[in-house]
Amino acid sequence: MTVGAASIDTTAALSRAVAGPPALETRDLTIRFGGHVAVNAVSCAFHPGELTCIVGPNGAGKTTYFNLISGQLPPSAGQILLGGEDVTRLPVPHKALRGIGRAFQLTSLFPNLSVFENVRLAVQSRRRIGLDLWSVWSANRAVREQAEDCLERVALADKRHLPVASLPHGDQRKLEVGILLALQPRIFMFDEPTAGMSVDEVPVILGLIQEIKRDKSKTVLLVEHKMDVVRSLADRIIVLHNGNLMADGDPAEVIASPIVQQAYLGIAAGDESAQQEGSHG
C-alpha cells in the first residue's frame, strides 16, 4: 500500500504490474480552477478484472477525477491513456466509442421516451445504427433483444413501456445503469450508484456490479461513500484528499491505516477499539 508519498508495502502494486498492461492510466492528471488545484498530479493505473473504489471526503476531487477521465472536463496538465493510447483531449462521445463508460453522467435520459426506447437508443449508438425514417428500425431484432436483455438485468423489464418521467428516482438510476450496459464499455465508471435508492433496490445494482467484475476483460472504477459497499466490492482502494492521491492499495490495509482512519473515519490515533470497528464494521 502507498500512503501519501511513502511506500509502505509494494506487494499490491507489484501484483498489478505483473498482471499485464493497464486498461486505463492517468499520468500526473491535473486540473486547476483559477488558483484552486482540484486534482493534483494524480497517477494511477487500472487493470482489467480489477474493481477500484475511489473514496475520500466531500470536495476531495473524486467526481472531478471522473470528469477528467470521461471527458466532461479538459485537464490542465497530465495524460489519460486507454489501452496505451493517449485519449487525453478526446471529447466524451469519442471516449465512449473507445470504451470508457460513465454511469449517471455519460448519457442523459430522455424523459418523454419510454424506458425501452432509452435503452434501445443506447444500443443503436453502440452499434452505430442511425435513425433512418425510411427503415423500420424498431423491428431490428438484434437491437431489440439486446435492449430487452439490459432491462432484464436492471429489473426494469416490467416497466419497459412507461415514460421515463414517470419513474421514481431509484428506477431512473437503474435505467442509467441499463444504458451503460447497452453501451458495452471496457471501462465501467460508477459514481455513487446506490445513492437515492431504497434498501430493496440496492441489491440489484450491487449484484450487477459484481457480475461485471467477474468479467476479467472489464475494468471497474467506483466512487462510493458507503464503506459496507466498498468492503463488499473493492479489490483496491484509492483515497483522494484535496485533489491529492493519499493512499492506494489493498482495501483492508487502506481502511486500517492510521492516516485514513483519522482523516475519513473520524478515529483518533491510538483508539484501537474504534480502529477495529472501522476496519470490520
Rank of each mutant, 00 (worst) to 15 (best):
L121Y: 15
R120N: 15
K213L: 05
R16G: 10
H241I: 05
G266H: 09
N67Q: 11
A60G: 10
G56E: 12
S70W: 05
G99C: 01
A13P: 09
V220G: 02
D250I: 14
S15A: 15
S217D: 05
E211C: 06
L206E: 09
T11D: 14
G99D: 06
L180T: 06
L233K: 04
E272P: 09
L183M: 08
D248A: 13
V199D: 11
A142K: 10
W137L: 09
P22F: 01
A139S: 11
L240F: 02
N40G: 03
K226F: 13
I100F: 11
E192G: 14
H47P: 08
Q146M: 07
H169S: 03
K226T: 10
R126L: 02
Q146H: 08
R128C: 14
E25H: 02
D248Y: 14
T219S: 01
Q172Y: 05
C44Y: 06
E148A: 04
A19F: 04
Q172N: 10
G84I: 05
I80W: 01
I187C: 08
A247T: 14
C53M: 06
G4Q: 01
E192T: 11
A41D: 12
S15F: 12
L151K: 03
G99S: 01
V177T: 06
A6F: 11
G34E: 13
G78L: 14
L24T: 08
L90V: 11
A6G: 07
Y65M: 14
V230K: 00
S198Y: 04
C53Q: 07
S114L: 04
D171W: 01
V204L: 00
H36A: 07
D28W: 01
A139K: 10
D228F: 01
P74A: 09
A268P: 06
L90S: 13
R32G: 03
V260N: 05
V202N: 05
S7D: 15
S166H: 07
G34P: 13
F46M: 13
N112T: 06
E145Q: 14
L73Y: 13
S273R: 09
H161Y: 09
A60K: 02
I267A: 09
I255Q: 03
R141Y: 01
D9H: 08
V254S: 10
N58D: 01
Q172R: 15
G281A: 12
C150T: 02
P168R: 00
A147Q: 09
R32H: 10
A45T: 13
N118M: 00
I212A: 08
V230C: 08
R120T: 12
R120Q: 15
G71N: 06
R128F: 11
P57F: 01
R126S: 00
V3E: 15
V119R: 02
L24F: 03
I205M: 10
Q172G: 10
Q210M: 07
V115D: 07
I238R: 01
V154S: 09
R102S: 13
H161N: 15
D200G: 12
H161F: 03
Q105S: 08
A274R: 12
S257Y: 15
V260R: 00
P251I: 03
Y65R: 07
R102M: 14
D215V: 13
P185A: 00
A23P: 00
L265K: 04
Q276Y: 07
E176C: 09
A96I: 06
R236N: 09
L151A: 02
H225S: 05
G20W: 04
M1T: 14
L245Y: 08
F188T: 08
D158Q: 04
V55E: 13
A77I: 06
I31M: 08
